[in-house]
């Protein structure tokens, strides 16, 4: 499969805290890659490096074969129009209603008319199973709805890849299931690849084509779910066996 991203020996520090310690990873077009790991293992930091929200201290990041490790802020703009980011809390703009939130990337990057924007907003909301909520503000939405609106905003400009930062954290099992189904649907219907950072096993089972396991800043496993089940790494085994002694 064709690579979108390639990470080579990525290191990232925050003061004395060495968060990422030599990460090597390929992200392939058309697949859902799930990055599993405990809290504070560096999963979200790795996602932010991919779109330049943080910069790596050492190592190289390639996007479509081009080195993007040390680009200036504006250098990341073409990448950010092709890669969407779904933040953990949704990160909807709370001074804007749902319509304005979804219209924001379209108004910023296209010359579409108001009618076309409204049609596209309605279409995106329909894809995530929400309708007639354009006038609502984020403060009046439930956690699950907020995640779905954020997902609608992420897909509205038809990205090639979506980076999901813990998409199901804090949601009840039914809403978690809905979000997982949507992630699969995005891949199947819209051919959008995904990188999903999580520590939620239902998301791993439902969404992963390939799994990477991050432990204390090191990538200790990359493979399929079947291979992960056979892994001898004690922490990874604990995730699959539900063992809390490790």
């Amino acid at each position: 499969m064709e690579q979108i991203y390639r990470l080579e020996q990525i290191h990232k520090h925050f003061g004395d805290n060495h968060v990422l310690r030599g990460i090597d990873l390929d992200i392939r077009r058309g697949e859902n890659l799930v990055i599993l790991g405990g809290s504070g293992s560096g999963k979200s930091v790795m996602l932010k490096l991919l779109v330049g929200l943080l910069t790596a201290d050492k190592g190289k990041i390639y996007f479509d074969g081009n080195d993007i490790t040390q680009l200036p802020e504006k250098g990341y703009y073409p990448i950010r129009t092709r890669v969407s980011y779904l933040f953990q809390g949704g990160a909807l703009f709370d001074s804007m209603n749902v319509y304005q939130n979804l219209a924001y990337p379209l108004k910023a990057h296209t010359d579409m008319s108001s009618q076309d924007i409204l049609a596209q907003v309605k279409d995106a909301l329909k894809k995530v199973g929400l309708e007639e909520i354009e006038h609502l503000f984020p403060g009046s939405l439930s956690g699950g709805m907020m995640k779905r609106v954020a997902l609608a905003r992420a897909i509205i400009n038809q990205p090639e890849l979506i980076l999901y930062d813990e998409p199901t954290t804090g949601l009840d099992p039914l809403t978690t299931h809905t979000i997982n189904e949507l992630i699969r649907k995005m891949q199947k219907d819209l051919q959008i690849s995904s990188v999903i950072v999580t520590h939620d096993m239902p998301t791993v089972y439902r969404c992963a084509d390939r799994l990477a396991f991050l432990d204390e800043g090191c990538m200790v496993f990359i493979g399929t779910i079947e291979q992960a089940r056979q892994s001898t790494h004690p922490k990874l085994r604990a995730y699959f066996q539900g063992d809390d002694r490790v």
């Binding site: 932010k48 779109v51 929200l53 802020e73 990341y76 703009y77 073409p78 950010r80 129009t81 969407s84 980011y85 933040f87 953990q88 809390g89 990160a91 909807l92 703009f93 709370d94 001074s95 924001y104 990337p105 910023a108 990057h109």
Partner: peptide, 21 residues
């Protein structure tokens, strides 16, 4: 307070991630 809350809730990062300044 407004911009600080936006920063703390990742709304500023969301703006940057959508290629806006």
């Amino acid at each position: 307070a407004e911009l600080g809350t936006m920063k703390a809730t990742q709304q500023l990062d969301a703006m940057r991630s959508m290629a806006t300044n």
